[in-house]
């Protein structure tokens, strides 16, 4: 394998990890506050649809991003009302949101654009275009480092950089701010937070809204950054992979990035391993590589390798003592 095909894999790993990073960090805020969220998939889907629709109609990708975020925040709030205010089952609520998003995107897409659930192809200002970092052209001929800089680091869409910047930002918010401390506390022991005179409800709602904003980014990236328009069921399980990455990373921001890169890498190579012979293993099946993120997560959850420790109060509605 030569350098250029290696860089090719690294490049697509980064592209494929980006939506996972957004979605997994979204889940991190929500789950660290004690609200389990299996509706990352649905929120990404609705955001992808909303931003592609808005971008197609108004021709502005920034407007598209905003509309996508609004849509997924709206869905987040449904989840919040169900699981915070009405103390419903968070898993059930998440399942419901996934279904509503799956159906709604197709029905509305068909009725608005009449292309079988697709949105019109985006072009020009309707898409996020590649950003060239300074000197990308100049250093292209420098051996090894040149192609890495100009081929991989430079020339990504802006949201890719936002995603990777979101990781240190999340770390900082979580571990270095008052909000982050309270957020972590409310996921571990809401009663203690309540005793300190801080509203559990308000904290959790804020966490859920942040989750909506970040899934909005994830969805917008899928339909206006990676692809040029929305296609039916375009998240294709990425929300669940992000959830797996979140668990795999033990609900910590920096490991989340590495888990997403790992799963993105598996996604990137799964297309390329068709028919490749590996020593010892023999022929690798595409299906096995595709199932690998899920298998790895199950193995990790089983506690044979490492130990997954979810936030203690996760999934439990908070009832103020009477």
């Amino acid at each position: 394998m030569d350098l250029s095909s290696l860089l090719d894999i690294v490049d697509s790993t980064i592209r494929l990890s980006t939506p996972l990073i957004f979605a997994a960090l979204a889940g991190l805020y929500s789950e660290r506050s004690g609200i389990f969220d299996i509706s990352l998939e649905g929120k990404m889907l609705i955001a992808a649809f909303a931003s592609a629709s808005a971008a197609a109609v108004w021709g502005s990708v920034v407007l598209g991003l905003c509309v996508g975020i609004l849509a997924s925040v709206a869905f987040s709030l449904i989840h919040g009302v169900a699981s915070i205010t009405y103390r419903g089952n968070q898993i059930v609520s998440g399942v419901a949101i996934n279904f509503i998003a799956a159906g709604l995107t197709i029905i509305l897409g068909q009725s608005w654009f009449g292309q079988g659930g697709r949105t019109p192809s985006l072009f020009g200002g309707g898409r996020f275009t590649a950003v060239d970092l300074p000197f990308a052209e100049a250093v292209r001929d420098v051996p090894v480092l040149g192609p890495i800089y100009s081929g991989v680091l430079s020339g990504q869409t802006p949201l890719v950089y936002v995603a990777f910047l979101m990781v240190p930002l999340t770390w900082w918010v979580l571990y270095r701010t008052r909000f982050g401390l309270r957020l972590r506390a409310v996921g571990e022991n809401p009663a203690a937070v309540d005793t300190a005179g801080i509203s559990v409800t308000f904290l959790r709602y804020r966490a859920v809204i942040i989750c909506g904003v970040l899934t909005g980014f994830a969805g917008a990236y899928l339909s206006t950054g990676q692809a040029a328009g929305f296609t039916r069921d375009m998240t294709a399980g990425k929300g669940y992979i992000a959830l797996a990455a979140l668990i795999f990373a033990n609900w910590k921001p920096v490991p989340v990035m590495f888990a997403c890169l790992l799963f993105g890498f598996l996604d990137a190579v799964s297309i390329r391993v068709q028919g490749v012979e590996l020593p010892l293993v023999g022929q690798v099946s595409v299906q096995f590589v595709q199932a690998l993120p899920y298998i790895l997560t199950v193995v990790l959850l089983a506690g044979f390798v490492g130990k997954a420790t979810p936030p203690k109060a996760g999934g439990v509605p908070y009832v103020k003592e009477r």
Binding site: A82, Y86, G88, V92, I97, N98, G103
Partner: peptide, 16 residues
């Protein structure tokens, strides 16, 4: 699929 999701939402998550 939408109706299914709504039924799950109202009969399950929002039962309270």
């Amino acid at each position: 699929v939408i109706i299914q999701g709504l039924v799950i939402l109202f009969a399950g998550a929002l039962e309270n």
